[in-house]
Design a protein around this nucleic acid. Structure first.
Lengths: 219, 219
DNA sequence: TATTATTTTTAGTCTCATCTAAAAATAAAC
DNA sequence: GTTTATTTTTAGATGAGACTAAAAATAATA
């Protein structure tokens, strides 16, 4: 169907389209993929022939509906594998990206159907990013930083922004992991520190913690 | 380290060395890989430069110690993934080969260490083939067909020779799967049929069944 | 042993995905 | 509104890995 390189380009363009609006520039793609602009031009032209992107000289590339679908499916595979690596093989959040980069290119629809079921059809990966469904649709994400949550509001931990070993160890100690419910009991204007409740425990956290933890708030 | 193509060649040569003795011929490799002899010559020369095989013009190729190690590791990965697919994702024996062909090339030592542990460090894959250990050593295998097992001897089912859906369904019905202990109660010279015991059940099987089931006999 | 037949290798070509260097188009600055 | 700067594209080259067709070495046969 698609080569490894083609899939990587589609994925990169998909991500860039969510950051910047309109056509994605050749240079932007080249930078995000650590390759040369001339290589990007070649590949984008190839993808245009395959109707995966709309491309006009000097005007950048835009994914077609079909291109979006393919890209979202690659991302779906990537994120499902990340869940597998963390939940089943006990990898840490920050160790799984490179491996998932490889696993995302395995070709087998059936494999992904079964993997998804095996993992309990998760909606988020270990970094808190939403997993596209089989049709390429993303769950509308209400993901925000814990520091943005108001007093007396609840959130479910869905990932981290920074993932240094020290931070992850801190979270382990405080029994915070994916799916953990967090209630904000108080918020100090002066330094942004918070008092939160996790399970039965109530404790103080600094702004540094709150700014590096993603939660999904109940709507 | 090694490209996908290189790994596949090493694997193919490894398998062929176990079938025929001495150097493996260019033609044999080409046939087993469904490629042309001229392509094989090219690659074998490349592998010889990398000291993975010993190669003399017109004399075939032979794996070096290092080449054997690399090949065995690829096979180890392949078979571990097959166990994962069958045991965890509930694939059938005959559905997993193609997917494992892809998964075996994922590069991450840590992944395989953890996958192995997750699966309980299995010694055999779902087809009854032994899984090389991390050093590339194969468990000396006493694998034989059930039809070769003598009266009053026991064997542990380790795989199937043929794996048609009908046969697998038959085995399911008789509650025979990997790890099932089978005792041969009687053997008919005339047609090779047998009476065997599986669990508490005793029943009759034809030669056709016995010739397609691999067991490991206790030593 | 001379002569076929087979196997294996060489030589040259092709595609994919990348690169460098140079040209062309667009954007920014004076 | 020219001129400079930046971005993007073309042109040509490279390395992997495969192929076809032809040459060379080995094996089989008369």
């Amino acid at each position: 169907m698609f080569t490894l390189a083609e899939e990587n380009y589609l994925k990169a363009i998909f991500h860039l389209e969510h950051e910047i609006q309109g056509g994605v520039s050749t240079n932007a793609i080249a930078e995000s993929m650590e390759t040369k602009p001339s290589s990007v031009t070649d590949m984008v032209q190839k993808l245009a022939e395959k109707k995966m992107v709309v491309y006009k000289r000097y005007k950048g590339a835009q994914l077609t509906a079909e291109g979006k679908k393919v890209a979202a499916y690659v991302i779906r595979k990537h994120r499902l594998w990340e869940v597998f690596l963390v939940e089943k093989l006990n990898f840490h959040w920050d160790q799984v990206h490179e491996i998932a980069e490889q696993l995302e290119h395995i070709q087998s629809e059936e494999l992904i159907i079964r993997l998804d079921k095996f993992l309990g059809s998760p909606d988020f990966d270990p970094h808190g990013d939403p997993i596209p469904d089989k049709h390429g649709n993303l769950k509308r994400t209400e993901k925000k930083l814990l520091s943005e949550v108001e007093k007396n509001q609840k959130g479910v931990c869905v990932g981290v922004k920074e993932s240094s070993p020290e931070f992850l160890q801190y979270l382990d100690k405080k029994k915070i992991s994916i799916g953990t419910k967090i209630l904000v009991l108080g918020k100090e204007f002066f330094d942004g520190s918070m008092v939160i409740q996790v399970g039965e425990e109530q404790f103080f956290i600094s702004i540094k913690i709150a700014e590096n933890l993603y939660v999904q708030t109940q709507e």
